[in-house]
């Protein structure tokens, strides 16, 4: 009788443990902060007018496997994955667009027109009558964090800079699979890591000398 009770207690403790471990993993949401993200080049002196466009190209979004607010996975106690979404409730590319535009404005540029379109050709056409000096088109081809014991980032970002006539002046990309340190117990710490990685990778797109030359 005593042994049966011990067995029941053990099963209950393990079930509770499983629930607790999974409880931290379900329904995580990350906020992408946009304040004071620096560009590698000196600020444009007179506030060059820019158009920006951001395009969702993540295959798992385009094929409908995941919702547009999907930004990664949080592993439960047994490695089981749960989707992580944007805290804003917006599509991820909307958050990217906000972070990207604020970064440019903090860097001294004037983002006079911004849009979300699928292709560079559509962006060039939409940009034609905006009267801006340069157009910056950002393709989000991959972006997801996978959080278990560590935070791993899968990313593929491509930036194209065009002039007022739609001529491509420079292209820059950041892509890879990167470990970003240990995971925190909780979505706040992991969200901070994800947010910091987004701003870092976006700013690295501007390290390309041709991109910098195109924005002077």
């Amino acid at each position: 009788m005593k042994s049966k009770r011990q067995l029941q207690v053990s099963v209950a403790v393990l079930a509770l443990l499983g629930l607790l471990l999974n409880g931290c993993a379900i329904g995580n949401q990350y906020t992408f902060r946009d304040e004071n993200i620096g560009l590698p080049m000196a600020p444009a002196e007179k506030g060059m007018a820019l158009s920006t466009g951001v395009s969702e190209q993540r295959p798992y979004i385009l094929d409908g496997d995941k919702d547009p607010d999907f930004i990664g996975l949080q592993r439960g106690g047994f490695g089981n994955p749960f989707d992580v979404t944007t805290a804003s409730g917006n599509a991820f590319v909307e958050d990217v667009q906000r972070v990207f535009n604020n970064m440019l404005q903090y860097g001294g540029y004037d983002v006079a027109f911004t849009t979300r379109l699928e292709s560079l050709e559509d962006f060039i056409a939409a940009n034609r009558d905006q009267g801006t000096t340069r157009g910056l088109f950002l393709e989000v081809r991959d972006w997801k964090t996978d959080v278990g014991m560590r935070v791993t980032l899968h990313y593929d970002l491509v930036l194209t800079v065009v002039d007022e006539n739609g001529q491509v002046l420079a292209t820059s990309s950041q892509q890879g699979l990167e470990a970003a340190g240990g995971a925190s117990l909780g979505e706040e710490g992991n969200g901070e890591t994800a947010s910091r990685m987004l701003s870092t990778k976006l700013s690295y797109l501007f390290l390309d000398p041709e991109v910098q030359a195109a924005l002077k």
């Binding site: 620096g38 560009l39 590698p40 080049m41 000196a42 600020p43 870092t200 700013s203």
Partner: peptide, 16 residues
């Protein structure tokens, strides 16, 4: 580690 004029993140480190 930031660039003083633009606050671009040149490097970062984390210990836990």
């Amino acid at each position: 580690i930031l660039k003083p004029d633009t606050r671009f993140v040149m490097a970062s480190g984390y210990t836990f």
